[in-house]
Amino acid sequence: MIENPFVRNFVSSLSKGGKLPISFVIHLEDGSLTTIGEEKPILDIYIKNPAGRKALMSLDQLLIVEAYIKGDIDFEGDLIKAMSFQQLLSDQHILLKIGRRLKPILLGREKCNPDWISKHYDSHNIQLFAMDTDYNTYTPGIYEKDEDSLEVGAERKLDFAFQSLNLKPNDSVLDIGSGWGGFVRFAARRNIRVTGITLSNHQKQYVEDLIDKNNFDAEVKYQDFFSFQPSQKYDGIVMMGVIEDLSDYPRVMERLLNYLKPGGRVYLDFASHKESFGTHSFITKYIWPGTFRMVYMPEFIDAVKESPFEIQAIYNDRRNYYLWAKGMYERWMEKKADIIDKSNEQIWRTFRILFAATAGTMNKSSYDSTAYRVVLELPEDHKSLQ
Rank of each mutant, 00 (worst) to 15 (best):
N4Y: 02
I22V: 13
S23W: 03
F24G: 09
V25A: 04
L28F: 04
K40I: 05
D44Y: 11
I45N: 06
I47W: 09
I47T: 07
P50L: 03
P50D: 14
V65G: 09
D72W: 04
I73Q: 06
F75G: 04
F85I: 03
L95W: 13
L96N: 08
G99Q: 12
R101G: 07
N113T: 09
W116I: 08
Y121F: 12
H124S: 13
H124P: 00
I126A: 06
D132L: 01
Y135Q: 01
T137N: 06
T139K: 08
Y143N: 09
D148G: 10
S149V: 04
V152D: 05
R156D: 13
R156V: 07
F162T: 12
L165N: 14
L167M: 10
L174Q: 02
I176Y: 08
F183P: 03
A187Y: 07
A187G: 05
T198W: 09
L199N: 12
E208C: 04
K213I: 02
D217K: 13
A218I: 05
Y222S: 07
Y222G: 05
F228Y: 15
F228R: 06
Q229V: 13
Q229D: 14
G236M: 01
G241L: 06
L246H: 12
L246N: 05
D248L: 05
R251V: 02
M253A: 10
M253R: 11
Y259R: 07
K261A: 02
G264W: 10
R265C: 13
V266P: 09
Y267A: 15
H273C: 15
K274H: 13
E275M: 10
S276A: 14
K285C: 02
K285T: 03
Y286G: 01
G290V: 05
M294Q: 10
F300N: 11
K305I: 06
S307E: 13
I314W: 05
I314R: 09
N316D: 15
N316L: 00
D317P: 00
L323D: 02
A325T: 07
A325D: 04
A325R: 04
Y329E: 10
E330C: 01
K336W: 00
A337G: 00
I340G: 00
K342N: 07
K342V: 03
N344M: 00
I347T: 04
F351V: 01
R352V: 00
L354C: 04
F355N: 10
T361M: 12
S365M: 07
Y372A: 13
R373V: 04
V374M: 01
V375W: 03
L376K: 13
P379R: 06
